[in-house]
Design a protein around this nucleic acid. Structure first.
Lengths: 146, 146
DNA sequence: CCCCTACATGCAAAGGCATTGCAAGAAGAT
DNA sequence: ATCTTCTTGCAATGCCTTTGCATGTAGGGG
């Protein structure tokens, strides 16, 4: 099966159905937008992006929560006190959370899909506190702002 | 000079003065509290902790901002959409930002002072986007919640 | 030691995003 | 086609963050 680069609406509907969610216009629209904008988006950004569809903001909000609950999107916080959501990789077990990088100057958010991060336990603190790392956020300066 | 374990009020005042800030009761109180509670605290937590002093919440809020601007405290966001502040290491150049770890279950925040983190650029994405990393946040499960 | 000015505080209010209650509406099974 | 259950719209609330403005005070100068 080819990697569905095509935002086939039917595929999205199937995705929703399989997740146990009803296929409603707002949900499909949200998923479709994520499909074509593969990076963390806030509720507000999504509402604005779909403004022409005239969905209620609360509906989109609850859809994001629902999609998160269904595992279709994941919620990330890049440090500006605004929740963001992004499409989760649905490819079976390939599914791996990736670190995010936020430029402290321009605010651009990047998904570091390819980067490996290694924690060196050093002395004692790490092992005594950290059991498992599930999310990584890096902040700094991006190359464009350098 | 010994590492000032003593929350000497005079030392705190000097710290403020050197930072170009006036020594007011709220500021000293805030710094003193940080001195004895060395971990990220939110504005709300601070207000509550200093409730008996009856400082205005807005005053404490602005003090946090001022202290941050002066480099005495740093602002961190552990992913719960609430700003937190913590005392910054003032020891000359020893001063190094450390990664933070937040347990997604109990919410406990840990400062990983000793941990070294290595980013493996892998393919292309890292180098093309990241110029400099200044802040690291890890989330996961702590050993107590394991 | 008193005076002055710039900076800080208190009080109040506004803004933004997150979250929820409720009645009307629509998806999907029968 | 009908019915049940999940969703949507609309409105309102809550919490945290942020700011305006008049009053008060720290700290330098006289």
């Amino acid at each position: 099966m080819a990697r569905s680069k095509t935002p086939s609406l039917d595929a999205l509907r199937a995705l929703l159905r399989d997740a146990g969610l009803r296929c409603t216009a707002p949900r499909v629209a949200v998923l479709e937008h994520f499909q074509t904008h593969r990076k963390p988006l806030s509720h507000g950004e999504l509402v604005e992006a779909l403004a022409d569809r005239e969905f209620d903001a609360a509906t989109i909000y609850r859809n994001l929560i629902d999609l998160e609950g269904a595992g279709l999107v994941s919620r990330v916080n890049v440090g500006d006190n605004v929740w963001r959501f992004e499409l989760r990789d649905q490819d079976a077990e390939t599914q791996r959370e990736h670190p995010h990088f936020v430029c402290v100057e321009c605010g651009e958010i990047s998904c570091l899909e390819q980067v490996r991060i290694k924690l060196t336990p050093a002395p004692g603190s790490l092992k005594s506190v950290v059991n498992q790392v599930s999310e990584i956020l890096l902040k700094g300066q991006c190359t464009r702002c350098a």
